[in-house]
């Protein structure tokens, strides 16, 4: 049974030490799973505050055997999911992953991702190197479903 570290603040180098480290701001969330389900997705918002463009080249997490950026496209009602390869993030630009588009595909989950827990992620960028963070685990993009008016 794996216990995810519950981190109040994402382990961003930039948040921890604003004067140093890369100005690569990452936030996001991961989709909850049920027992027995071995795959899920995480959605990240990456803001590159650096003066140079960069590329997200790899994602890893201790919770899944494999993490890879995939993109879903919809045409004529048919959805297709393909590997997205390295994701470019231009200088001063933001990449926003969303359901039905870019996402981090997680496969080989060792245990369910439970709502309220956090998923630790390690991102590797071509220029700034490693960025670590933990994202909240939710059922869907917003928790609007739980707060109906």
């Amino acid at each position: 049974m794996r216990i995810f570290p519950l981190l109040a603040v994402p382990l961003l180098a930039s948040t921890a030490a604003p004067a140093q480290g890369p100005a690569m701001h990452v936030s996001g969330w991961a989709r909850a799973t049920v027992p027995g389900q071995t795959g899920s997705a995480a959605y990240l918002t990456i803001h590159n505050g650096e003066r140079s463009g960069d590329r997200l080249v790899a994602v890893t997490t201790p919770a899944a055997a494999k993490a890879s950026v995939h993109v879903t496209t919809t045409a004529g009602g048919v959805v297709r999911m393909r590997s997205a390869g390295a994701v470019p993030v231009g200088a001063g630009q933001m990449v926003e992953m969303k359901p039905g588009g870019l996402h981090v595909m997680l496969t080989g989950l060792e245990s369910p991702l439970r709502v309220g827990e956090q998923l630790p992620l390690t991102l590797r960028f071509a220029r700034v190197g490693t960025v670590r963070l933990a994202v909240p685990i939710r059922l869907q993009a917003s928790d609007a479903g739980h707060h109906q008016h």
């Binding site: 989709r31 071995t38 795959g39 899920s40 997705a41 995939h70 879903t72 359901p99 039905g100 595909m105």
Partner: peptide, 9 residues
């Protein structure tokens, strides 16, 4: 069920 994105969405 191995569909991580569109199906649960």
């Amino acid at each position: 069920t191995h569909c991580p994105d569109v199906c649960p969405t």
